[in-house]
Write a protein that binds this DNA or RNA. Structure first.
Lengths: 345, 345
DNA sequence: TTGTAGGCGTTATCAG
DNA sequence: CTGATAACGCCTACAA
């Protein structure tokens, strides 16, 4: 290992000067600077981060708390975070929080107290994780995609309520009168807000809220639970002719279940998903869904976190990125779609 | 921040004693130990990792070099690595190498020289990344899934050649005479070995190698390139009646393309994939494929790396985990499958 | 069994 | 503009 002292000796200067040159602070004669740089370069000097971090009381590491790597939604966010953090000179430590109880308070506190990380980005805190507020101001934090309701902690996401309203309004405009929803039992704010958006649109369309049109999938949005929810929704009298799902994978489950029940999408049933992950266009019918800018969400999270670490005055506390309803092949007009049933009305 | 000195003072002992207690080394009176633990607990003491790492010249961090988070194959491996590393007291730093030129030598060296990491796991080195050999012995390394050919560096994977042979032998046993392969243009050893396994099985079945039965998909196994390869393979005279694909996603692309060409899988065409990622059973026909123990691969990688970091004598250098051919719905007997063509023979 | 003290490699303060 | 030097918090000989 080559230390700063070795470089100093080789360049014929003191360690202070080497440090100044390499950190670009303080005034150094161009001539000495050149000599130092040459020496450092030639010896392949790399500053020891443990030493630097100890001295500066930082770690240049960002903690990412993610529940589930295999969800393509998170992997895109992750890419965005990693790309920006690398440019800013930060490394990214990844912690699997598993789907269950998203965050672990003691683990988090311990990591910060150990000086392991300078800040953290949560990818899936629950909307009732109020304990996070205790650490506001102490540990820089950005909540990405999901955030604690009414907590005023920095967060970034799309406007889930508006997006859901857009989706369901689209179904209503197509003439659907019985619009169902497959939501989830989890404690994510996004899920709650998507449900609210669904209710908004139902009300705005002058339709009656109906509990038999609501089904719950498992907390982790599994494909199987999407199928199950669809069976519950469609297996009753007067079933929905359109279903809004709070995630793409659930929507795919719904389409699969509908197919098994002899219902063709979109002719017999319209379906809308949420997120626009890769496999929405891997099989026909291509899924109509809400496109969420995952990668950009990740990028902005890291930028925002950096602002907070730097204690910038302008650091925002709530950022909403634009979403988009992407019309593809799983929605159709009610009249065309189901002539039999339309006669019943 | 509470330091070891604070704990020492509170417990009425010296810092050395506190250190000894907390690190479980050296002899300490049970009584003093209790006092120290109580004090540490009460004050919420957490050792400063920067200081400890500087002193011990380690980082307790593992580097994971991954090309593409959104590939479910890698995300499962990642979970395995993270679970084990956490138990061993390591944090996991994740570096996106992107699909292109998997590893960056200078980046890697710099991270080690900076004392950022104690070891690293590569998830996708190319088979010709010979430069890795230079650092054997200097920087602990485990290559997971992919490894450098003939380099004798620690690696762990399935026996890709045997697995491919199994797959293709299965197709041959079903009576297929014209068995195609969709492989890829990348520089992964797994791809090369799967191709070799394909050739092995073709030879063992007494079939003639035929270049028109080989198609190349893009380096990153994209769905679209799988479709394209299938079109090339199936759009000619005397096309294959079965296709072995070096990845599941390619197989799904092949099935999609075949469907568009009016070919029903498995009746008109048998298809076998590789990896057994989640979505192989999301749509019918469920994919017949090679099941690879991704999570376990990740777990074992980390355990192996730990052995090497500890310089254990028994640390293995090559580990192969068992694979399994999982028969599902995309393969069928040749005779049944395609009566028209079978008459031509 | 316990305490003292040196040093890990940096950065930053203070003189010169 | 440059150099000497004191921390940063911890571990670990060595001494008692």
């Amino acid at each position: 290992m080559v230390r700063i002292e070795d470089v100093a000796r080789a360049a014929g200067v003191s360690v202070a000067t080497v440090s100044r040159v390499l950190n670009g602070c303080g005034n150094v004669l161009p001539e000495t600077e050149a000599r130092v740089r040459a020496a450092a370069q030639q010896m392949g000097y790399e500053p020891n981060l443990s030493a630097r971090n100890l001295r500066k009381n930082e770690s240049r590491i960002i903690l990412i708390l993610a529940p589930n790597f295999s969800n393509p939604y998170y992997s895109n966010v992750l890419s965005g975070i990693c790309d920006v953090s690398r440019n800013l000179g930060y490394s990214t430590l990844i912690y699997n929080t598993y789907d269950s109880n998203a965050l672990d308070e003691s683990l988090m506190v311990s990591l910060f107290q150990k000086n392991r990380a300078d800040g953290m980005i949560t990818l899936a805190c629950n909307r009732d994780d109020r304990w996070l507020e205790k650490y506001a101001g102490t540990y820089p934090l950005v909540q990405c995609s999901e955030y604690v309701e009414d907590a005023n902690l920095p967060h970034i996401s799309v406007d889930n309520r508006a997006a859901a309203r857009d989706s369901v309004a689209h179904l209503a405009e197509l003439g659907h009168k019985r619009i169902g929803i497959v939501t989830s039992e989890n404690r994510y704010l996004s899920t709650a807000n998507r449900f609210r958006g669904y209710q908004d649109a139902i009300a705005e369309a002058g339709l009656e809220p109906d509990e038999t049109l609501v089904a719950y999938a498992s907390a982790d949005y599994s494909f199987a639970s999407g199928k199950q929810a669809a069976r519950a929704l469609l297996g009753v009298e007067n079933p929905p002719t359109a279903i809004f799902c709070v995630s793409d994978i659930l929507a795919l489950g719904v389409i699969a279940a509908a197919g098994k029940m002899g219902l063709q999408v979109p002719w017999d049933l319209s379906v809308v998903g949420f997120d626009d992950v890769d496999y929405t266009t891997m099989f026909h019918p291509y899924l109509t869904t809400i496109s969420v800018p995952c990668y950009e969400l990740g990028r902005r999270s890291m930028q925002l976190l950096y602002d907070h670490i730097q204690q910038k005055q302008e650091a925002e506390t709530a950022v909403y990125l634009p979403h988009q309803l992407v019309l593809r092949e799983t929605t159709a007009k009610y009249a065309i779609q189901n002539p039999d049933r339309s006669e019943q009305i």
